[in-house]
Simulated assay, not measured.
Amino acid sequence: MGFGGFLHLDFSHNYPEFLAQLVLNFDAVGMKFKLDRNRSINVKAADVHMVYGIPSGGKEIVDAKNSNEDYKEVLNSYKRYHGGVLSNNVNKLVSKLALVESPLDDDWKRNFLVLVVNCCIKSIQNQQPYLRFLHTAIDVNRISEYDWCSYTM
């Protein structure tokens, strides 16, 4: 899928002050970290690739509309995987993916993608998973053909 870099991320718990300063000094509109003396570090898609190790080229990801047929099809598959309903909690995704008996099939891969996007790419405070990107996983073998770095930006 091209998201193996997430398996090697080292989120240190030893530097919470540093991480807090990074967040506080990030300009999301200008996509840059503000430094002292009116300096800054611009963040580009290549930086996202270097940090996360996710695919950085190819097809642009445009959030799907309800009328998108691929989105409808993959959303129905996602619902079936969760007993016919939309899973309304990211924590439930973690629990289901972590089960040893869960087969590592296409549905598992789609749910892993939902987890990665909701926790590391488009994270929001709402526990309801964001799914408008899910049409990119209609064929899980082609997920890596999308530009996930630009989508993250």
Rank of each mutant, 00 (worst) to 15 (best):
D36F: 07
G58K: 05
V116M: 09
H13G: 14
G4P: 00
L99E: 15
F3E: 02
W108S: 03
L35E: 13
I61Q: 06
Q125I: 01
M31N: 09
N42E: 14
N89Q: 09
P55V: 01
D36S: 06
Y151S: 05
D147F: 01
M50T: 08
W108A: 12
H8Q: 14
E60N: 11
V62I: 15
K44N: 05
N126C: 13
N91E: 14
C120P: 01
G57T: 10
D139N: 14
R110L: 06
V117T: 04
A46T: 14
E69P: 12
Q125N: 11
V43T: 08
V62F: 11
E145G: 02
M1K: 02
I143E: 03
C119F: 00
V116W: 01
M1C: 04
D105C: 01
N88Y: 00
N141P: 01
S67Y: 11
N118Q: 03
C119G: 01
N111W: 11
L99R: 13
M1V: 13
Y151L: 02
K44T: 12
I143Y: 02
F33Q: 09
G57R: 09
H8Y: 13
V140L: 03
D107V: 03
Q21V: 10
H49C: 03
S87N: 15
T136S: 04
D27V: 04
S77A: 15
V116Y: 01
K34S: 07
E17W: 00
I54M: 09
S150T: 11
V90K: 09
P16S: 08
I143P: 01
D27R: 11
F18N: 05
K32T: 06
Y15R: 11
S95H: 14
V74E: 03
Y151T: 07
N126M: 06
S12M: 01
S87V: 13
V85S: 10
F33M: 10
Y130W: 04
E145Y: 05
V100D: 13
Y130C: 00
N68V: 06
H135F: 04
N88K: 15
S102W: 05
K79C: 07
S12T: 14
P16W: 10
K96D: 07
L86K: 07
Y146D: 03
R80T: 11
K34R: 15
D36Q: 11
Q125M: 11
T152E: 00
I41Y: 12
N118I: 04
R142H: 05
R37Q: 13
A46V: 13
Y71K: 03
A45Q: 14
T136V: 15
D105S: 02
V117I: 13
G5M: 05
K122R: 15
I61M: 04
D107Q: 12
N66F: 08
N89G: 02
D63E: 15
P129C: 04
A20N: 14
G58E: 08
V74D: 03
